[in-house]
């Protein structure tokens, strides 16, 4: 069986839209509803965030969603159950993204196996060091789970290549030296960084994330990467809405079409 992420990125002719949202937010059982609505609205990939009490790489929007999700009662075990259920209803690849400690407490091997069994296609664990991952690489490969690592504008070329070599599915290109959060537009320095990444001819496609919030930033990111990842602006949109499905449809539309 092919990995859904690899399949998507090798077959698609157009840039992919990947949407990040926090599991169990705004309500505990919204994880599945959001996935279904995102697929209906035209998203290509979802990244479901495992909430953590101390999300140091996140700005205020995702921090707040983490806190709410934990207050709602979200946990790794519950999320895996929710994913197994939504897997039968959505076709697109599902990625779990989260800080290391909740995964470590669940148990690394148990987590990888249960995630694969639930139908998860890929993982992003931003504070997992490359050399710590080495011991699990054979397991994730055998489970057909892709594992994507992050690069940032300050990552050296040698390290970008090392990260590309160990990543599967795609490389997550963080657009700026920043925490997560919506920004209006990209600077010339960021565009230069995207061009630099393009020139490396990496083995993996790269998706650009952080700071993407509107048509301008989305289309720019898609012009350089294999697609774009949005998170904070999406979470902002759904946290303020009364009608989840309508809000999601409107959000995807506003991102992918010029005014």
């Amino acid at each position: 069986m092919k990995n859904r992420i690899t399949e998507l990125l090798s077959k698609t002719k157009k840039p992919v839209l990947s949407v990040f949202y926090t599991a169990g937010f705004p309500n505990l059982d919204d994880t599945e509803k959001i996935a279904i609505a995102l697929e209906a609205a035209g998203a290509d990939l979802i990244e479901i965030g495992i909430p953590f009490s101390d999300p140091v790489a996140d700005g205020p929007t995702i921090q707040a969603s983490n806190k709410k999700a934990l207050d709602n009662g979200m946990s790794v075990a519950l999320l895996l159950k929710q994913v197994a259920a939504l897997r039968t209803k959505v076709k697109m690849p599902v990625i779990l993204m989260g800080y290391l400690n909740p995964v470590m407490q669940y148990g690394f091997e148990r987590f990888f196996k249960d995630a694969a069994f639930a139908g998860v296609d890929g993982l992003i664990l931003p504070d997992l060091p490359l050399d710590e991952f080495a011991q699990y690489e054979a397991l994730t490969t055998s489970l057909n789970l892709s594992v994507s690592f992050l690069i940032s504008p300050t990552t050296s070329e040698a390290r970008v290549r090392k990260i590309d070599a160990i990543s599967t599915g795609f490389v997550y290109a963080v657009s700026a030296s920043s925490t997560t959060g919506a920004k209006g537009q990209f600077t010339p320095e960021q565009i230069a960084y995207f061009n630099r990444l393009k020139s490396y001819n990496l083995k993996n496609p790269f998706l650009i994330g952080f700071g993407i919030s509107n048509y301008t930033t989305y289309s720019q990111a898609c012009a350089y990467g294999a697609g774009a990842i949005v998170g904070s602006s999406f979470i902002q949109q759904i946290s303020e809405s009364k009608n989840l499905e309508a809000a999601i449809q409107q959000f995807v539309l506003s991102l992918t079409t010029s005014k």
């Binding site: 953590f52 934990l70 800080y99 400690n101 909740p102 995964v103 470590m104 407490q105």
Partner: peptide
């Protein structure tokens, strides 16, 4: 505490069974 990861290192950490600090 139990072994866990916070603020960049693996150490003993007061946390819930779900790994929340």
């Amino acid at each position: 505490g139990k072994p866990g990861v916070l603020h960049g290192s693996k150490t003993l950490l007061m946390q819930t069974t779900d790994g929340q600090v």
